Amino acid sequence: MTLAFSDFEPVRVPVAPGVELSAVVGGSGSPVVLLHGFPQTRLMWRQVAERLAGEHTVICPDLRGYGASDKPDAVDEEVYAKRTMAADVVALAGALGHEQFALVGHDRGALVAFRAGLDHPETVTHLGILDIVPTLDMWNVLQGVSAAVGYHLYLMAQPPGLPETMIANSADAFFGSFLDAWAGDPAAMPPAVRAEYLRASAAAVPSIVADYRASAGVDVAHDRADLDAGTQLAMPVTVVQQDWGAQLGYDAAGVWRAWAPDLDHRLTRAGHFMAEEAPDEVAAAIRELLAR
């Protein structure tokens, strides 16, 4: 199989001083930006992107710190704050000629998309979220033994040094464990794709840890400031996720409704990697979002 997107053009775009994002662009029509999750790259969107490209200009970047994009040193938490990463995405789309665009994110990319929706409401016209709750709420719902499902969040929240060393010394086992444990349908991730995720993740351990560390610090502060100010998402929002509420004992739709008054909340039977496991379902949800 090929790891390339069919009929998509690779681009590399400066988005901040000393930082360039690598992306692929294809299709025509109103723009949609798709942001990948952990431990993946833009490759996770290959099937959904091709389904949308007949109707939309589809932009799939590697996030700062991931894949083929630049990985600046984390001199402080702001370097990998979701606010910073969201600004990257806005700059990327603007450089490609799109002052407004729809934005869909999965996992870590969904946290970036959420922050972009709050910080750039005049730019993000529609917001799609796959399988997360906002950072502040995530920490609030992880309690007791149920928090074991998110052990990696606590590991990568530790001060610089130990997490990076531990993960780098067992990168394939560490990253591969999530590809195995979170997949509803392992066959949806062919060996060549899995191998590329492992290769790319092993090459990005410091920046991946920095991304997660920011979510235990500065990202929480940003979310709390917006919550205290009553800031909400102004655009139509669709959330597609597994039934984490039932598994962890909270009202997932209620959590999202506090942030998104215009909300379509959906549960899926697919696993965490739903863009690969159920591309027709995910593409249909995005099309319906864009029609609102």
Score class of each variant (00 low, 15 high):
residue 7 D to S: 15
residue 13 V to T: 14
residue 14 P to E: 12
residue 15 V to C: 10
residue 16 A to W: 01
residue 20 E to C: 14
residue 21 L to P: 06
residue 25 V to F: 11
residue 30 S to N: 11
residue 31 P to M: 04
residue 33 V to F: 01
residue 36 H to W: 04
residue 37 G to F: 04
residue 43 L to P: 02
residue 45 W to E: 03
residue 47 Q to E: 15
residue 51 R to N: 07
residue 55 E to A: 15
residue 55 E to S: 15
residue 56 H to F: 12
residue 60 C to D: 00
residue 65 G to A: 05
residue 72 P to K: 06
residue 76 D to M: 08
residue 82 K to T: 15
residue 87 A to N: 06
residue 92 L to T: 11
residue 95 A to D: 12
residue 97 G to D: 08
residue 97 G to E: 09
residue 98 H to I: 07
residue 98 H to F: 15
residue 98 H to L: 10
residue 102 A to K: 04
residue 102 A to M: 06
residue 104 V to I: 15
residue 108 R to C: 02
residue 109 G to T: 07
residue 116 A to Q: 04
residue 117 G to Q: 01
residue 119 D to A: 15
residue 122 E to W: 09
residue 124 V to Q: 05
residue 124 V to L: 05
residue 125 T to Q: 09
residue 125 T to P: 11
residue 127 L to E: 00
residue 130 L to A: 10
residue 131 D to K: 03
residue 132 I to Q: 00
residue 133 V to A: 03
residue 135 T to W: 00
residue 138 M to S: 13
residue 138 M to I: 03
residue 138 M to V: 03
residue 142 L to D: 00
residue 143 Q to Y: 07
residue 144 G to W: 05
residue 145 V to S: 14
residue 145 V to E: 14
residue 146 S to M: 13
residue 148 A to Y: 13
residue 153 L to R: 13
residue 154 Y to L: 13
residue 159 P to K: 07
residue 159 P to R: 10
residue 160 P to Y: 05
residue 160 P to G: 03
residue 161 G to S: 12
residue 161 G to Q: 12
residue 161 G to P: 12
residue 163 P to L: 11
residue 168 A to K: 12
residue 169 N to C: 06
residue 170 S to V: 06
residue 172 D to K: 13
residue 178 F to H: 13
residue 181 A to N: 14
residue 185 D to C: 12
residue 192 A to L: 13
residue 196 E to G: 03
residue 204 A to V: 12
residue 204 A to D: 08
residue 211 D to I: 07
residue 212 Y to L: 03
residue 215 S to F: 00
residue 217 G to L: 05
residue 218 V to N: 00
residue 221 A to Y: 00
residue 221 A to G: 09
residue 222 H to L: 14
residue 222 H to P: 00
residue 225 A to N: 01
residue 230 G to K: 07
residue 232 Q to E: 12
residue 234 A to H: 11
residue 236 P to H: 04
residue 236 P to I: 01
residue 238 T to R: 11
residue 241 Q to G: 15
residue 242 Q to C: 14
residue 243 D to L: 12
residue 245 G to S: 08
residue 245 G to C: 09
residue 247 Q to E: 12
residue 247 Q to A: 15
residue 248 L to D: 01
residue 250 Y to G: 01
residue 254 G to T: 08
residue 258 A to R: 15
residue 258 A to F: 02
residue 259 W to I: 02
residue 259 W to C: 02
residue 261 P to S: 05
residue 263 L to F: 10
residue 264 D to E: 14
residue 266 R to Q: 15
residue 266 R to L: 14
residue 271 G to L: 08
residue 272 H to S: 04
residue 272 H to R: 08
residue 274 M to Y: 03
residue 275 A to F: 03
residue 278 A to F: 08
residue 285 A to C: 06
residue 286 I to M: 02
residue 287 R to Q: 10
residue 287 R to Y: 02
residue 290 L to K: 00
residue 290 L to D: 00
residue 290 L to C: 01
residue 291 A to C: 02
residue 291 A to L: 10
